[in-house]
Design a protein around this nucleic acid. Sequence first.
DNA 1: ACAGTCATGTATACGTTGTATTCGCTGAGA
DNA 2: TCTCAGCGAATACAACGTATACATGACTGT
Lengths: 254, 254
Amino acid sequence: MASQKKSSAAPPSQGEDEGQAQTSLWERLERPAPAPRAALTPHRIASVAIEIADAEGLDAITMRRLAAELGVAPMAAYRYVSGKDDVMELMVDLVHGELEHSQADGWRETMRALALRTRALMLKHPWLAQLSPQAAFALTPNRMAVAERSLTALDSLGLNADTMMAIVRTIDSYVHGATNAEITLHQLMEGRGWSSDDELKTGLAPQMIWLMGTGRYPTFQRYLLEGTHKDDPQWQFETGLDYILDGIAARMGI
Amino acid sequence: MASQKKSSAAPPSQGEDEGQAQTSLWERLERPAPAPRAALTPHRIASVAIEIADAEGLDAITMRRLAAELGVAPMAAYRYVSGKDDVMELMVDLVHGELEHSQADGWRETMRALALRTRALMLKHPWLAQLSPQAAFALTPNRMAVAERSLTALDSLGLNADTMMAIVRTIDSYVHGATNAEITLHQLMEGRGWSSDDELKTGLAPQMIWLMGTGRYPTFQRYLLEGTHKDDPQWQFETGLDYILDGIAARMGI
DNA sequence: ACAGTCATGTATACGTTGTATTCGCTGAGA
DNA sequence: TCTCAGCGAATACAACGTATACATGACTGT
């Protein structure tokens, strides 16, 4: 694990014996053992990156950190990925392999289940909310497979291609928008060291009091007082999802 | 504009005369003219930052670049903002001032118009899609005002607070999810130097051909062949939005 | 059995970033 | 006229992504 690098920054031409050998025997013996053979693979790089990102967020992924966690020199991973963006594409693909199939009864249940599982996946890997454009749009095999499954669920309903895609995109946009907001809130809380909804509320209280004190947001204030599902993201997610599925069903003639 | 800094990196204690004056007259004359008085304000910082981000993306905003654009030393802005996150919060608030009121006929038209204008705002300021959690959730006055207006539009319908908020959140999630995807695609295209849908298609073609060649995505492939609204984001956005508004209207008894 | 090639990981270095710290200048109030 | 608070400049540092050049040992064909 912890690489013990004792090798001094030896200047290349400082021969000790007769100037023949550029590095002394002892210097060579102190060098870290050379790689057995293929210590790295893209898959292993991505796996370790995912572990780091899950535990400490996307910012914790640096090529140096990744190399350290892999037990390898900072530049080693560049043999397998062309840069940080490549790592992220691999991460995205790998993680989407976790989304299981589930052929439910009808299109509606299938889409609903997929939405819920996508939300769960994103909450499990919150860094999915912060991807670079490169990684966010990567056409990776596992991602394509998910899209294919969605379309398949709608395939026997006699819809034209545009409508099918519109339905999938609408649900997808909602799922990502809603879950991103949820994740962002989590990250904000973590960033400030708040770990419960109560802490969030007390932390936000000063600003809220000031804002409400202006009297400019009366309806918002009423919600703050009357809302009972404010802290129930699952209810909020499903409620909105059901609105949307209702709307789609109505357009399609139930 | 272009600051002409000629000042050498003068070591502090290199008296030329009698060691009395730490900096010689000529050194002082060469120094950039001191600030007239309060060259900076948070508002000006945010304005310039927005200009940069609109033109070159969020990554172009560095504290050094910002300072250069303001005609000021790299650290100067730190008198007014506590760091980069502060700058972004200011940017978010400032930009949300652009969203005009528009009391349309009923709740549905009001919400629809707000959704369309929000999308337009985001497309105009694409960096809104990439905010840090800090900035993304900032409770800024202008942002609160937008939320308040949404809620007001629903206020006279006899809904309870939770339902009202669920409706607003659902639409908001969709708008952000859909528009983020749109922006992300734009940014991907810019990043690769593609400027038209045709270039996008040719650029993506190799990967698409490979993916389709696997035969694992037949329904997706059918869409690629049959879809006629693939390149019409406005249609896609409005179609999804109308699904959602339909669903909400149905729940509320039209 | 053996020299040569090649894949693999290492070492070093450069430019850029955010920001802590410290300083000197300036103009307004006494 | 003097003083001082406030403003911006200067310097510095650690961390980042990655270009480049190199050393090493495992395979190859003979």
